[in-house]
Amino acid sequence: MTELTTIASLQCKQQVVRAVRFNVDGTYCLTCGADKKIKLWNPQRQLLLKTYGGHANEVLDAAGSCDSSQIVSCSVDKSVILWDVTTGQPIRRYRGHASSVTCVTYNEESSMAISGSVDNTVAFWDVISRRQEPVQVLKDAKDTITSIKVTDHEILTCSVDCHVRLYDIRVGKMISDYIGHIVTFGSMTHDGQCYVLSCADGSIKLFDKDSGELLNMFTGHECKDYMLENAVSEKDTHIISGSATGEVFYWDLISSNCTNKLVHTRNKPVVSLSHHPTENYLITACEDEIKLWGIKPAEE
């Protein structure tokens, strides 16, 4: 594995970047700031493309639609906002949650936005119609929803109540797994067979989706009280996670050995990170700065 280096470093001027997200094809990224704004960047060219202002409080998460025409974002102001990318205007504002909305994502076709909130609910928003109420609300969790991952027919929700819940639309079933620790972030491998859970005990656990068995555990990073995120490399070979120490850890998925450590900023937690969907690029956020990591294009 060739060495990953910082390709680009961007000062977002957003006080703190709460989340950084690649768009669907990885050409752009979104940063959600504590300054109530969302910024759309081209990280490769280090260009700020657009700023989306309209939230009344810190923006906690955002996601771009599959055609990159819309952005959905959620905020501490309890609202979920659907943005038009080109005009920068909010298209719809959903006010169904009773508390801060912590995470939001689109489904595969970007016809629904799914948001999780501190009010322990997961809400499905129909972004196609003009309906203002959630289409469905999942109330199974007994504590804050920390993250949501959506595949073509499944919704994985992680909650502070130490459970991971997998809702299978196809079967009409909800599988809840007791993890034993607060799950701060959940992602799925690209083959859809495993989920990778960042736990508050300072470990990342790899679970088999079908059996619910623990396949592997990745440790070495420092969690503290941060809601660290994780990512899976584009070829499912590595598990990536930030750390409170300001480093980014790469673990081999099979051997669970730490293969790489990228230093973003010493002793400043790397909370949010996002991996390029198809290529070996990683974007990490640490306080006000985001960094794009990758292999420098061969100049020679």
Binding site: F124, Y167, I169, G172, S176, D177
Partner: peptide
């Protein structure tokens, strides 16, 4: 550690998920 429960997605959710 695993629990299973019936869960019925709304028809509109199914529709939007193409399921």
């Amino acid at each position: 550690t695993r629990n299973e429960a019936k869960w019925r997605p709304e028809s509109l959710v199914c529709k939007r998920f193409n399921i």
